[in-house]
Design a protein around this nucleic acid. Structure first.
Length: 456
RNA sequence: GGAGAGGUCGCAUAGUGGUCUAGUGCGGUGGUCUUGAAAACCACUGUGGGAGCAAUCUCACCGCGAGUUCGAAUCUCGCCCUCUCCGCCA
């Protein structure tokens, strides 16, 4: 019942989720949206508590008005008697109101964002829709696209026995998961030598592009309060994906969490701010480690560095006006495609269906998946999400229009490059029959060589 | 870590228990005057919840939280942040 406490955050953070007014006025759409997303939120309970809250509010307001009126000037002793009992009455009503408010907020926090009208309704990954696919020969025509991975028939194959990234990584002496298992356990990795150089080469390439595009680079906190994770809507749903740090003897009464992405840190930078419309969009990026517990994915992607507890990611996030978020989402997708095309790695872009649209903030989400020829499969390397005003409500990020009206901003977030996964994609696509791996041309100047060879 | 000062409506400031429904200045918006502008003068100038068709009324919010009181910006306690000095350490 009181999940707020068990999650370690206070109810007062929760001021706006999906607007309660919106839920009141569009109850059926909200219900259908929850079903389509395979989410669970108690709409009836919300409406009931909202009604209860409203009635209590009216009652408390009336009592307070009486008290205020009676206490304007020094009351007579017998007046004081009356006001005293009025005051105790108010206290008990107020604590009742507070409890109702907390329960309401807890329930509201589970209501996901409304999906865009163009998101296909579907149950899971089989219902995702390819919107484009690219190979070194250019974009595939639309008739070659379809659901899930239809375009895979047109993706390249090797004419030799190809290896996966871990075999390549071991022989090239750039990935070691055996020693990391001793040091930290499963799902960790040492990435070394040219693996390290590849990572920083990718960073350089994209960083330079983003600076050129007018993004602000940021170094951000990696330990954040629950409030930041709630604000970016990783809480409450993904609370068990997150590492909580034992912070006793530090700031009192404040739990800290290791971020699973720099997104919470980046968006929380704008928390409680009102930005002038002329200063929008705000475009920022950060390059940070990301920590994920990966509970619930036991046995999945256990090989190599595809799904690990700690990986580095350059994340690019933007704050826009409500009119511009869709355009921004396409713009960020364009940067994703630019990178993969620079690297000459085949990929497809899929529009996630309702049942697979990810975390609660998503209004519309694209995943970009790189082609892995050795596996004859696609692998997610980026995801581009328009959260509309969902995160901005929770974080209280507003903008003031040129007419002076204040509105909640829109947020759009996108993986710039997730290093582990991109290294997998490079190793896989650039491997040669002799077990060596070519360095993508655009990265050569940063890596300092054009081919990686197994020395031993 | 120690000592001190402070956090008030966009900014600056006043306010140490009861017309504070938070005053004043600056800035901003509208108006009067003016050929136009400036100046002057007048009015308005926060966020959120609720009632009402509406004008309007009402509740909460003075860093955050708890408490004392009939009544808290003001008193008490805890926490956070900023500044100054000292200590410690990159």
């Amino acid at each position: 019942m009181d999940a707020c406490i068990s999650l370690g955050y206070h109810s007062q953070w929760i001021t706006n989720m999906l607007d309660i007014k919106f839920i009141r006025e569009h109850t059926e759409e909200v219900r259908q949206n929850i079903i389509n997303r395979k989410a669970s939120a108690d709409v009836d309970g919300i409406l009931e508590l909202d009604e209860k809250r409203k009635n209590l509010q009216i009652e408390v307001d009336g009592l307070r008005q009486q008290l205020n009126a009676g206490s304007k000037q020094k009351p007579t002793p017998e007046e004081i008697q009356r006001l005293r009992s009025l005051s105790t009455g108010i206290s008990s009503k107020e604590s009742e109101l507070k409890e109702v408010q907390q329960n309401l907020n807890e329930k509201l926090s589970w209501v996901p964002n409304m999906l865009s009208a163009d998101v296909p309704v579907g149950k899971g990954e089989d219902d995702n829709v390819e919107v484009k696919a690219w190979t070194k020969d250019g974009y595939l025509s639309e008739d070659k696209l379809g659901k899930k991975d239809t375009s895979k028939a047109y993706m390249p194959k090797f004419d030799f026995a190809a290896k996966d990234h871990l075999d390549l990584g071991k022989t090239l002496d750039i990935i070691d998961v055996e020693q990391s298992a001793k040091v930290s356990g499963t799902r960790f990795a040492y990435i070394k030598n040219e693996g390290f150089l590849l990572e920083y080469a990718l960073f350089e390439l994209l960083k330079n592009k983003l600076i050129e595009e007018g993004f602000s680079p940021m170094i951000v906190p990696l330990l954040v309060k629950g409030k930041a994770l709630f604000g970016s809507s990783h809480f409450p749903e993904e609370v068990d994906q997150v590492y909580k740090v034992d912070s006793k003897n530090v700031e009192e009464g404040e739990e800290l969490y290791l971020v699973g992405s720099s997104e919470p840190s980046l968006f929380s930078y704008f928390m409680d701010k009102t930005i002038l419309e002329k200063d929008l969009p705000k475009k920022v990026f950060a390059f940070t480690p990301c920590f994920r517990s990966e509970v619930g994915s036991w046995g999945k992607d256990v090989r190599g560095i595809k799904r690990v507890h700690q990986f580095d990611k350059l994340e690019m996030d933007t704050v826009t006006s409500e009119e511009k978020s869709e355009e921004m989402q396409q713009y960020l997708l364009g940067i994703n495609e630019w990178l993969l095309q620079q690297l000459q790695i085949p990929y497809h872009v899929i529009l996630m269906c309702s049942g697979d649209s990810g975390y609660a903030a998503a209004h519309k989400k694209y995943d970009v998946e790189a082609w892995l020829p050795s596996q004859q499969t696609f692998m997610e390397v980026m995801s581009d999400t328009n959260a509309t005003d969902f995160q901005a409500r929770r974080l209280n990020i507003k903008y003031q229009t040129t007419e002076g009206v204040k509105k909640y901003a829109h947020t759009v977030n996108d993986t710039g490059v997730a290093m582990g996964r991109m290294i997998i994609a490079i190793l896989d696509n650039y491997q040669q029959a002799d077990g060596s791996v070519k360095v993508p041309e655009v990265l050569c100047k940063y890596v300092g060589k054009d081919i990686l060879k197994p020395e031993k």
